[in-house]
């Protein structure tokens, strides 16, 4: 009854060859840029010296992993990476959903489109510029402090206070990604059967009830998938924004694994050590992804696999 995988694949390929052709560039992209470099990962177990090359450098086993676990910063790095991501998950995940729900309630199409377009804009500003703005606005003589002073508050140097780093990082992240992140939800909302709303209206449901009982369940699957994505990205936080914002005062809350890898590898030339730390990061990342998928299957009955 069942034919082998290969014959089936072959038949499918013949039948749907244009689809396969379309996929070729992406497959090549992943092979070259994502799978190819995995080979270089072996330097995490070697003492890499540029003069000797990847193959020629001596094997050292788990030396670099041990060094990392013994270093003073190890646990702070892991904690910071988790915390910043937890903030992003706790506040960054609901924000675009709420925004999409609110947008959906707007009845004036012109106003709705304008708001939507304006909300995309921050996403297209270069990160360097965004960070420059953040640093400028949060100075003691910056806009934010001017506002606080206007209402009789005390001026604070936000970027020098370790306690403020994570909130600032998260808030600006939400500001930048709010409109962009809501697109997928808006698309999902437009796909909900209008008949359901009509039926609910006839049954006497108000706006809140419709939002709670129709809109939210209607985009449940989308939320689940975005949630898994977010968890999958948790440890692979980009270092760019961190290194543009942190300073000596905020290392204790701001320094994350990727910024550490950047400093150790690209700035200090400890390529092997930073590869080891990066590999460790990827392993944690994978574990988290699997857990998130399990959780999602429980909660939303949707999973990636």
């Amino acid at each position: 009854m069942k034919t082998g995988l290969l014959p089936r694949l072959g038949r499918d390929m013949r039948r749907n060859w244009p689809l396969y052709l379309l996929a070729v560039p992406m497959i090549l992209f992943y092979l070259i840029f994502c799978y190819g470099p995995i080979y270089g990962q072996i330097i995490a177990f070697k003492d890499f010296s540029p003069g000797l090359g990847i193959m020629g450098s001596p094997w050292v086993g788990l030396k670099h992993f041990e060094a990392f676990f013994q270093s003073r910063t190890c646990w702070a790095l892991i904690r910071n990476t988790f915390m910043i991501n937890l903030y992003a998950l706790a506040f960054g995940l609901p924000a675009p959903i709420i925004f999409a729900l609110l947008l959906n309630e707007l009845r004036n199409p012109l106003f709705k489109r304008t708001v939507q377009t304006v909300s995309y804009m921050p996403y297209f500003i270069s990160l360097v510029v965004v960070c420059g703005m953040i640093l400028e606005f949060t100075r003691q003589d910056g806009v934010v402090n001017d506002l606080i002073a206007l209402f009789g508050g005390r001026r604070t140097s936000f970027m020098l206070d370790p306690g403020w780093f994570r909130p600032i990082y998260t808030i600006t992240d939400i500001w930048q990604g709010l409109g962009w992140g809501s697109i997928i939800y808006i698309a999902a909302i437009t796909n909900i059967d209008q008949g359901l709303y009509e039926a609910a209206t006839i049954d006497g449901a108000g706006r809140w009830r419709k939002m709670w009982h129709i809109t939210l369940p209607g985009i449940r699957e989308t939320i689940a998938i975005v949630y898994i994505m977010k968890v999958g990205q948790m440890m692979s936080l980009g270092f760019e924004k961190i290194i543009l914002l942190y300073n000596g005062m905020t290392y204790e809350t701001a320094d994350v694994i990727s910024s550490y890898v950047y400093r150790m590898g690209l700035m200090q030339m400890n390529f092997s050590y930073s590869s080891a730390v990066g590999l460790l990061n990827s392993v944690i990342n994978l574990v988290l992804l699997v857990i998130a998928n399990k959780v999602s299957k429980r909660l939303f009955e949707v999973g990636m696999w």
Binding site: M26, Y30, F33, C34, G36, P37, I38, G40, Q41, I54, I225, V226, I228, M229, G232, Q233, M235, S236, G238, F239, S258, V261, Y262, G265, L266, F271, S274, S275, V277, G278, L279, N281, S282, N285, M304
Partner: peptide, 21 residues
Amino acid sequence: CAASLALSACSTPSSESSALS
């Protein structure tokens, strides 16, 4: 999402393998 997942998944090794790539 799968596309961005794959992208994010390989963004981790890329920071250290960028030396090579």
